[in-house]
Simulated assay, not measured.
Amino acid sequence: MRFTATASDVRKALAGTEVQIARSVTAGMRQVTDGLKEDLRDDVRRAGLGQRLANTWRGRTFPTSGESVDAAAYVSSNAPKLINAFDQGVTITAQGRKYLAIPTPDAGVRVVSGRRAKGSGGNGLTPAAWERETGAKLRFIPTATGGVLVADAFYRRQAARSQRRKSFRAIREAGPAKGRSFVVIFVLVRQVKLRKRLDIDAVAKEWADRVPGAIAANWTA
């Protein structure tokens, strides 16, 4: 996803030499670039999507060097599909007869020994990666909406103080938790709905409306 902001008819709006106008327009558009980029990052952080996704927003001002009356601000994300999903709200459906595996809090930490979990893009935890890391086996239990993958109740997640480590292990308790024989590690569903959590168009429009003011603020006679 990307946005471009330009200043139109600045020669009519500003009375001055070509050099003065170019200097004002370019300085103004650089401020717009930085402001739009930071506000889009703030939008991601406010949505609770984390600094890493926020940092995918990048900005450039054209021309990259020198000054021009046709200067433009260009802001885009390095993760356009993910940004668009949270901006529009989309339904993600498992392909074929497969399920989407959603880790529960009992699954443990999400980073898998510093390695990329196959099929997860390196950002999530898969059932295969969980079994490999813990040495524990998962059992499938069907439900009305899909199913769950469970581990023996002798397994429990790491203590909170250990959950920032790059690896985790199964912790065996003395006996099963009272009243249950297993722990749900993954919930399996056919599809999941991502609700709209960003408002990118509103942020972009706000900064587009600021372009004339940014240029005027940098005007030097």
Rank of each mutant, 00 (worst) to 15 (best):
A151Q: 06
I200Y: 08
R172P: 02
L100W: 00
F140T: 00
V183S: 11
S77R: 11
F182T: 15
Y155E: 02
V90G: 05
G179H: 07
P176C: 06
F186N: 04
T134E: 00
A85M: 13
K98Y: 10
V109N: 12
T126I: 05
S162H: 02
F86H: 14
Q163S: 12
S120A: 14
K118C: 06
E173Y: 00
G135K: 01
V112T: 13
L149E: 03
S167Q: 14
R210I: 01
V184I: 14
R139L: 08
P80W: 10
A208S: 15
P127F: 05
R110V: 11
G96K: 00
V109E: 12
Y155I: 02
R161T: 14
R139M: 09
K81A: 13
A136I: 09
E131Q: 13
L149Y: 05
W207D: 07
R180Y: 06
A208K: 14
P105D: 05
V112D: 10
E173D: 01
K196N: 08
L198R: 07
Y155R: 02
A94M: 01
K196A: 08
R195P: 15
N84T: 14
K137S: 08
G146M: 04
G121A: 07
P142N: 12
G121D: 04
G121Y: 08
G124M: 13
D152Q: 06
R132M: 07
L194D: 09
R172D: 04
V203Q: 11
F182A: 14
S120N: 04
D201A: 11
G135H: 02
F186E: 07
I200V: 14
V109D: 11
G122V: 15
V183T: 14
S162V: 01
D87W: 09
L149C: 07
Q191H: 10
K98N: 13
R165Q: 15
G121N: 05
G114I: 04
R115M: 14
L138K: 00
P127Y: 03
S181I: 08
L194Q: 06
Y155W: 06
R132A: 11
A144G: 10
R116P: 07
R116M: 12
N78W: 10
F168H: 12
E173H: 00
V184Q: 10
A204F: 11
R161F: 12
